[in-house]
């Protein structure tokens, strides 16, 4: 919610104060900061409901078909998920640190913390890319496009069975090679997996874009102990992205 940060270039007439970063309709910096903070919390509230829809779909399908989720999770790489959790937690630390640096007028520290946060965000996306590309390469798609290859079935140690595997066009030939018992509607797990992590990934990308803008302003020297709202608000958004991942990790990767 960068709108909280509008510098009042809009000439709403007579500006008594000299600080261009204080919008004309606020009494002082504290007033502007409090209002902006309320705005960003409201925004985070709606983000929660937005993700809430996916968590709802997740709980219903897992509640009704836990076996599908147990089998689906075998296709995910827990180690990569755990590393990504740590990367994201570290970026949250640097994001919180950037707020501290801004409050203390520490311009160098602020820039360093932002750069580290952006770096971690890219690291997170990089690891996610490795995971995604492996799955997509092996035919582990969402929904109707789910046609896993033999290699990844073996890699995931999916219980061998006697049911013939459906062909690419979805037809089942009883004479076809009998490879593995796939739980019916296993693709639903991957629909949910790709929707949840994909939407989370889009939020990470959005976070990177906002942080690049904050970085530019930090280098320009816009922020100080009196005016650091945008740094704080962006960090709050970033923590929410972290918060969502804190739940996604055990829900998707750590299924027993």
């Amino acid at each position: 919610m960068d709108a909280a940060a509008h510098e009042s270039h809009d000439a709403h007439g007579h500006d008594h104060h000299h600080d261009p970063r204080l919008a004309h309709h606020f009494e002082d910096h504290q007033h502007q900061f409090d209002t902006g903070k309320l705005g960003i919390w409201l925004f985070l509230g709606q983000e929660l409901l937005f993700f809430g829809g996916l968590f709802c779909a997740y709980s219903i399908y897992r509640g009704l078909h836990p076996e599908v989720f147990e089998e689906g999770a075998k296709f995910l790489n827990t180690n990569l998920g755990a590393v990504n959790t740590v990367v994201l937690l570290f970026s949250s630390l640097t994001a919180a640190w950037s707020v501290r640096a801004a409050q203390l007028n520490n311009k160098k520290g602020l820039i360093l913390a932002i750069v580290l946060t952006i770096g971690c965000a890219f690291g997170f996306l990089g690891i996610k890319y490795v995971e995604y590309s492996h799955k997509l390469h092996e035919g582990v798609f969402w929904g109707q496009s789910f046609h896993p290859t033999r290699e990844i079935l073996e890699e995931a140690h999916v219980t061998p069975g006697v049911v013939p595997m459906p062909a690419e066009d979805g037809s089942v030939d009883p004479k076809a090679e009998k490879i593995a018992m796939l739980k019916p509607n296993l693709h639903t797990f991957f629909s949910i997996y790709f929707m949840m992590t994909g939407l989370h990934g889009i939020h990470v990308i959005a976070g990177i874009l906002v942080y690049l803008w904050i970085l530019r302003r930090a280098i320009r020297g816009d922020f100080n102990s009196e005016y650091y709202g945008p740094v704080d608000f962006t960090a709050l958004y970033w923590h929410l992205v972290d918060l969502v991942w804190i739940y996604l990790f055990p829900l998707l990767y750590l299924i027993h």
Binding site: W41, L44, L49
Partner: peptide, 18 residues
């Protein structure tokens, strides 16, 4: 309170639908 209300909304939504 805003955050708690949102969490409450999510819980309400999931629990009733579930």
């Amino acid at each position: 309170m805003i955050f708690a209300t949102s969490v409450l909304g999510v819980v309400l939504f999931i629990s009733i639908a579930f």
